[in-house]
Amino acid sequence: VTLFVALYDYEAITEDDLSFHKGEKFQILNSSEGDWWEARSLTTGETGYIPSNYVAPVD
């Protein structure tokens, strides 16, 4: 499982989006939707859509 880490803070715009803070880690559930990925936060356990350009793979 490839994990991703937030590079910036993000505040949800719609109820389907997931708010997060810089440094938060995610498991990507679906990355086939283009620039918005469905993800689960490993910090909160919540799922929602995140902007793919706000995250990077964890080394």
Rank of each mutant, 00 (worst) to 15 (best):
E11L: 11
V1W: 13
F20A: 02
S41V: 05
S19A: 06
A39H: 00
S52W: 09
W37Y: 09
R40W: 07
I28S: 01
E33G: 14
E38Q: 14
A12E: 02
S41D: 03
T43P: 02
G45R: 05
P51L: 08
E33Y: 12
E33T: 14
P51S: 05
Y8W: 13
N30I: 06
E11H: 11
V1I: 13
D16P: 06
P57H: 06
L3P: 05
N30L: 06
E38L: 15
F26A: 00
L18Q: 03
Y49Q: 08
S32E: 11
I50E: 00
D16N: 15
T44L: 02
L29Y: 06
Y49V: 07
E11C: 13
I13S: 12
N30D: 13
V1Q: 14
A56N: 06
G23Q: 02
A6S: 05
A56W: 09
W37G: 00
G23K: 02
E46H: 12
D9P: 06
Q27K: 08
E38Y: 15
V58T: 07
D9Y: 04
A6G: 04
L3Q: 07
Y49H: 08
K22D: 02
W37R: 02
Y8H: 08
N53E: 09
E15V: 11
G45D: 06
K22L: 06
A6F: 01
S41N: 13
N53S: 15
P51R: 09
T44N: 06
E24L: 01
E11F: 10
P51I: 04
L7F: 03
T47D: 04
N30E: 07
K25T: 11
E24C: 06
D16S: 14
G34M: 12
W37V: 06
L29M: 08
D59R: 09
T43I: 09
E11G: 06
L18S: 02
T44H: 04
S19K: 04
I28K: 04
R40G: 01
E38I: 15
I50G: 00
G45C: 09
V58N: 06
T43V: 10
Q27S: 08
W36T: 06
W37M: 06
E46D: 09
R40Q: 09
I13D: 09
D16L: 14
K25Y: 15
D9I: 02
A39N: 00
T2P: 12
T44I: 02
D17N: 14
L29W: 06
G23Y: 05
E15P: 13
L42V: 09
T43C: 11
A56D: 05
D16M: 14
E24I: 02
T14P: 03
D9L: 03
L42M: 12
N30M: 07
V55P: 00
W37E: 01
T47L: 07
T14G: 15
S19V: 03
D16V: 14
L29D: 04
I50R: 00
G48E: 00
T14A: 13
T14M: 12
A6R: 00
F26I: 04
Y54S: 09
E15C: 11
T43F: 10
W36L: 09
E15F: 10
G23T: 02
Y10F: 11
F20Q: 00
L18C: 02
V58C: 10
T43A: 10
F26G: 00
T47H: 08
I50A: 01
K25F: 14
G45P: 01
S52V: 09
T47F: 07
Y49N: 08
G48V: 02
E33M: 15
I28W: 02
V55M: 09
V55G: 01
A39K: 00
E33K: 15
V5S: 04
I28F: 03
S31W: 13
D59N: 12
F4I: 03
H21K: 15
F26M: 06
P57L: 08
G48P: 00
F20R: 00
N53M: 10
K22C: 07
T44K: 03
A6T: 02
E46T: 08
W37H: 03
D35N: 10
D9A: 06
S31I: 12
A39F: 03
S52T: 07
V5F: 10
T44S: 09
S32V: 10
G23S: 04
S41C: 07
D17K: 15
I28L: 06
